[in-house]
Amino acid sequence: MSGMRSITLGHYLPGNSLLHRLDPRAKLVGLLILIAALFLIRTFSGFFYFGLFFLIAFISSRLPWRYFLRGLKPVLYIVIFTLILHFLFTKGGRVFWRFGVLTIEENGVYLGSFMTLRLILLVVTTLLVTLTTSPIAFADGIEFLLRPLRIFRVPGHEIAMMMTIALRFIPTLMEESDKIRKAQMARGADFESGNIFRRARNLVPLLVPLFVSAFRRADDLAVAMESRCYRGGENRTKMRQRQITGLDYLGVFTACGIALAIVLTGV
């Protein structure tokens, strides 16, 4: 596996579409509302309308669909797993298929498809938001959403800072792990063959240096931040105060409206 240098979490693709320009706070609030709607939907027709709405949003975002589909790959297994689980183990209704003790029954098929659809829509909607939101904007959005929780002493700023740093360092650490893996392979290490225990043990030459390096980087970074006067969220300002515009209200209202409409038709 090479070529991890450019990958960031969520694979954000810069752009200038409506979705790209929406304020991250508006986008996250909208996303939460839509997800809530998704869990209230009880019929397939509800999913159909939701899917239609997603399609419109997707097209307007002008993301390359190949790239989008690639981002879905990791969740594919979970989707298939859910499907199989429900097909095999949810019982009731007509029996479609039988093999020894295994049966596939009507309720299983129904529930399986239903759950899978919900999962897919959930994932694609979230992916659409992450692909059109830069990591830093995303972190800002999270910080905003966590603000009400301050009364419960939830450190919103710190969590957002941690997210930003994690996002910033994921490419670096991936690159590093790639490098260490190759360095050990050059010394004859074998990460590919053997049974699971052997493989786990063979990972030691990769994991030890990776941890050491992560700690060293963390240490370096902490020193660099401290030397630039970082002292937590208090009295901190932001270069770009994000301005909520009419567009953002419109975005949130649209999401609300659509969610409501779909839920009402689909419950």
Partner: peptide, 10 residues
């Protein structure tokens, strides 16, 4: 031998 090879010691 990669750059900063001391980082591969384990």
């Amino acid at each position: 031998l990669f750059q900063f090879p001391e980082h591969q010691l384990f």
